[in-house]
Nucleic acid binder design. Sequence first.
DNA 1: TCTGGGGTCCTAGGACCC
DNA 2: TCTGGGGTCCTAGGACCC
Length: 424
Amino acid sequence: MYGLVDCNNFYCSCERVFNPALRDVPVVVLSNNDGCVIARSNEAKALGIGMGVPYYQARNLLEANKVAVFSSNYALYGDMSRRVMMMLADFSPELTQYSIDEAFIDLSGLGTGNELYDYGRKIVKSIGRGTGIPVTMGIAPTKTLAKVAGHYGKRYKGYGGVCMIDTDEKRTKALMGLPIGEVWGIGRRNKARLESAGVRTAWDFTRLSESWVRQLLTVTGVRTWQELRGTSCIDIDELPQKKSICTSRSFADGGLCELGKVEEAVANFAAACSRKLKQQHSCCATLTVFAYTSRFRTDMPHYPINRTVQFAVATNDQQEIVSTAVKALRAEWPGDNRYHYKKAGVITWNTMPDKAIQADLFDTTDREKQARLAKAIDTINRKNGHNTVKVAVQGTGSAWQLKHEHSSKHYTTDIKEIIRVKTQ
DNA sequence: TCTGGGGTCCTAGGACCC
DNA sequence: TCTGGGGTCCTAGGACCC
């Protein structure tokens, strides 16, 4: 049996942990740049605030209902996630973190029936008490069915946060009540395709023939089909090494027109990629830089920038990655300031372990010197915070500041913002 | 006026090999 | 006029996830 542990309305719950006044009021969290609503408390969902709606469109509704609005605070969410996962790891050594707010655990050998259910209850209670984050657990013989169980666990209070699908009878009942679009692995496109073929519920889907499913949805669809029928076949890799690393942001207001400003942003994105590569002990052989104008502005001229560069020797060196990204951007720059760039980013890929780099016969770079300098800079930055020493083109960051007007404190990651307890 | 960020996997088709 | 058979690798694009 598998357990899926999922944090309820995770970002909103994080905001509530250190701010009890938010406990029974509607809360939403916005994306970077205060762009869209990306997390909603149950009260906010009940008001009809949709997932992903632009903030400016929801604003009136939010203000009219006195909804507490927060800019995203990833330092806080990342740290709270770490706490939840650490506690969870004590309950099952076989844990696969699937996203910032959910993880699968292997429950084999931990009992059956009521015994297993009670174990689930214990996990949910402990994490709630230990971290302040409410979680729901789905238990079932496959990961996809565990997701289904979790779906019901969140909707019906009576389950006490744990829903288990452990008999054919329960499975049938659960699938009959589940619209096909709610199934993990069935997205918008495939939902439409299946519905036009008369498939309304997850149960209908499991009644199709395998060959039919394969033809319509390829092997990924067949795996979902098998999992819903009770045969486990989806493996989730731990993926300690990411295959590609992307750092990108949207720019506030109308976007950026000047090369110098976009350059500064891209340099910082490239530096972030270098940092992330080093963190997972890998190097990249390829880098892509991109910059896009707003796809929502049909009234303005567009000129997408997208350039990919190969490194002769795979690298994670900050200066090399920053200078390569900036040169690539300059090479594609349109040459006038007519275009409003709304978003830019750097992707590093063709990633490999830093211990297994293929050298280049014709490489003339002094790698040793480069490595010594990088090591010195990394040591300073590790001690004093990243970007204490940076490449000059990274600038001061003021050219492309993000909008973050409703941010909460870094309660758990900055000693200056730690919560105060008043004693009278 | 204002619309997020970061990933993975699969497939088809082209280029290439002997 | 007639033009084989069997592979691999790479890439772009689409679909999905949170």
